[in-house]
Design a protein around this nucleic acid. Structure first.
Lengths: 330, 330
DNA sequence: CTCCTTTATACAAACGATTGCAGTTAATTC
DNA sequence: GAATTAACTGCAATCGTTTGTATAAAGGAG
């Protein structure tokens, strides 16, 4: 790899002149510039971003910490983040936590060590202190999908309304015994959905039907198990609300096995996404604008990075609303 | 951010001693070590990886360049890559090209500038020269899913067998007029599938039924349009092979609209993935071990990175085989 | 006691860029 | 013609590490 020094030697000037010529930020004689460009081209010179980052204290890189990519909305969000970041000259580093607090901690600790200027995180909810610490150390942080800490900027969807509207919609469809596949009720984003569900149920004068189990929340099996529970607990059940698509699919598997159709029990998922609609089993769902949320998150974290220290921004909280997309399952 | 210097000052020793103490790689008196650890802890010292990377010429980072994440096998592959890389102490940088040659070029040029030690790429097929250039400049490169250049290591699935087996399977199911949603026949990985299809058709003494159109290959619409073509071209059509799931879904939409069931025309996709099975519309597909392929790719690129210059590895080519998973669409 | 090895520390030079400062011309102004 | 300014270039410090070399004290062997 050719360095500035090599170019300088070939062009018979000082490295500082080469730097100025290539960055176009100070007086350099046109002839000299010409010579330098030629030398750089001949050597196939490419600036070393690591050296640049060290000197300037800016790595132009953001880190993204998510629980998973596959089978989840995060792959779409990540694509939005990457697109926006790249457009603004930032690189995107990805870390997958599997919703494991220890892995998350490990990832965050590595990111803080000069890896990135900013972090976008969908927190597990168990490293709040560490995240605040990192934020305090001067690294911009934005929470995504899950808001753990109000002192840190966030981008989320309106889960409560999401849950509320799902119930209302089912009610209008004639359902009166509406079950929720709950679980992780103390944690965002599940908490909000649960609250919305309760409010709507109460308002409409219905009874709550809840279920949870010990399996991993974000799984097909969780949906399968909980749906079975709901059916066992209430013979009159006529609708099931799943927090995420994959649970909904587990629930539908149960219905299918028992030969129960959509006319008897409807299923709705609270986290689908627009483009995913055509790919997934045709399930009614509340969809959030994942790509847009990702882009916005990147824009927000970069804005915080580039804001000078003297006028620190106060945390901002952006809430996107999900929209109901009706499909065959209801 | 506290630096080595700060720690050194507090512990009243030289920075070099601090470095050696923290890296445990030379003689440091136990008492001194104690003092240094205490000082580092007090200051909340974290080593600056950028400085370390500059000095050591190793960034411990790999770059991943893929056409897309959402609605594609790449999200699962990426998760495999990240897991393996993290386990080996490497960070993962992600770039999404949207299968656009210009974007790919831009990404590669940024990655080469000292960003990463190695690159895993599913190439668009249009920047072969640049990729060889990068490889020649000392950055390890591994091709993934699509093999463009035999002089560079690769990890792919056996697409030809994939296509061959799909035809054979359908034949055994009684199908005699088997259509292929083709397109991009000159490019891997489509090329291999096409070849496999042809070989099987020939061997079985059947006729080829091909279709292609001008839409983006990797889309629902492409599948929709081509399926319509196939139906128009051959009234006796009894099976459709799609290269990827999303095309298959487009094809199934057509059949659904026309009221044609699986008993009349079967549909099979040549790129599904194991875990995806339960999430997707229940479509028979050839599935590749995406997660495993990702992990292997990461392992391979890291191995190339860590191999000393004097004994350069010759390119290795790993081929995974896909397995047929039967579902409702056939 | 001398010589050699082991242990322990500091000094200083890298890595590859950027950038403040100073110095040298050449052009402009009075 | 002297003073001022603008245009251009080089010197050297700096970012935060690692690491080769020098130095010094301590311990062991002969």
């Amino acid at each position: 790899m050719a360095t500035l020094k090599d170019v300088a030697r070939l062009a018979c000037v000082d490295v500082s002149t080469v730097s100025r010529a290539l960055n176009n930020n100070s007086y350099v004689h046109p002839d000299t510039k010409e010579k330098i460009y030629a030398a750089a081209k001949e050597l196939g010179y490419h600036p070393n971003v690591v050296a640049k980052a060290l000197r300037q204290g800016k790595r132009h890189t953001i880190g993204v910490v998510v629980p998973r990519l596959h089978l989840a909305i995060f792959s779409e969000i990540l694509q939005g983040i990457e697109e926006e970041a790249r457009g603004r000259g930032y690189a995107t580093l990805i870390c997958v936590t599997e919703d494991d607090a220890k892995t998350e901690k490990e990832c965050l600790n590595r990111l803080r060590n000069g890896f990135v200027d900013g972090i976008i995180i969908a927190p597990t909810g168990k490293n709040g202190h560490l995240i605040r610490d990192i934020k305090a150390s001067g690294i911009a942080v934005v929470q995504l999908v899950r808001r753990q800490d109000h002192s840190i900027s966030s981008i989320v969807a309106d889960y409560e309304t999401c849950g509320y509207e799902a119930v209302t919609y089912l009610y209008e469809k004639g359902c009166r015994e509406i079950g929720l596949i709950a679980g992780a009720q103390h944690l965002e984003p599940y908490k909000g959905r649960y609250t919305g569900y309760r409010k709507a149920i109460k308002k409409l004068g219905l009874e709550e039907n809840l279920s949870e189990c010990n399996l991993p929340v974000n799984s097909f099996e969780y949906g399968y198990e909980c749906a079975n529970q709901l059916l066992a607990d209430n013979y009159a059940l006529d609708a099931i609300i799943a927090c995420v698509d994959i649970q909904g699919l587990g629930a539908r598997r149960v219905l299918k096995e028992k030969g129960i159709g959509c006319d008897q029990i409807k299923v709705i998922s609270l986290t689908g996404h627009v483009v995913g609609g055509m790919l997934r089993t045709s399930m009614t769902s509340m969809e959030m604008p994942a790509n847009e949320m990702g882009m916005k998150a990147a824009a927000m974290v970069i804005e915080e990075i580039e804001t000078p220290f003297d006028r620190k921004l106060s945390p901002r909280h952006l809430v996107f609303s999900a929209s109901l997309v009706e499909r065959e399952s209801t």
